[in-house]
Simulated scan of single mutants.
Amino acid sequence: MPKWGLSMKTGKIVDWFVSEGDTIAKGDDIVDIETDKIAGTLESPVEGLVRRIIAEPGSDLPVGAVLAVVAPADVPDAEIDAVVEEARAAVESGALEEGDEPEPQLVEVGGRTISYLSLGPDEADAPVVLVHGYGGDKNSWLFVQQPLAEDGHRAIALDLPGHGASGKDVGDGSLNTLTETVTGFLDALGVGRAHLVGHSLGGAVVAAVARAAPGKVASLTLIAPAGFTPEVDAEYLRGFAAASSRRELKPLVGRLFADEALVTRQLVDDLLRYKRLDGVDKALTAVLGTLLGDGDRQAIDTPALLKDVDVPLTVVWGASDRIVPVPDGVELTRVDAGHMAHMEAPGEVLTAIRARL
Rank of each mutant, 00 (worst) to 15 (best):
A242G: 01
S7I: 03
I53D: 11
L252I: 07
G64R: 14
G190L: 09
W317K: 14
D15S: 11
A204K: 12
E43M: 10
K12R: 14
G329P: 03
P62E: 08
L96G: 02
I30E: 00
A319E: 15
A73T: 14
D270F: 07
A71Q: 06
S19H: 15
D60Y: 01
S7L: 06
V14A: 08
I33H: 01
D187E: 11
V31A: 00
G173N: 05
V14G: 06
D125Y: 13
D81T: 07
P303Y: 00
A73V: 12
V128P: 05
G5F: 10
I24V: 15
M340N: 15
L178E: 02
G329L: 04
S174F: 01
G318R: 00
T285H: 09
H163I: 05
L305V: 06
D259S: 09
S219E: 05
A242Y: 05
G120V: 01
A212E: 10
G135L: 03
E248W: 11
A210V: 09
L350H: 07
R354G: 07
H342F: 12
A355N: 11
G40Y: 02
L42K: 00
R322G: 03
S140V: 12
R51I: 04
F228T: 12
Y236W: 14
A78S: 13
A25W: 01
T302K: 02
A337V: 15
D137T: 13
E92K: 14
D15I: 05
G318I: 01
G11S: 12
P127G: 06
P225N: 11
K3I: 08
D36W: 07
V31F: 08
E150K: 09
A95M: 05
S118T: 02
G347M: 08
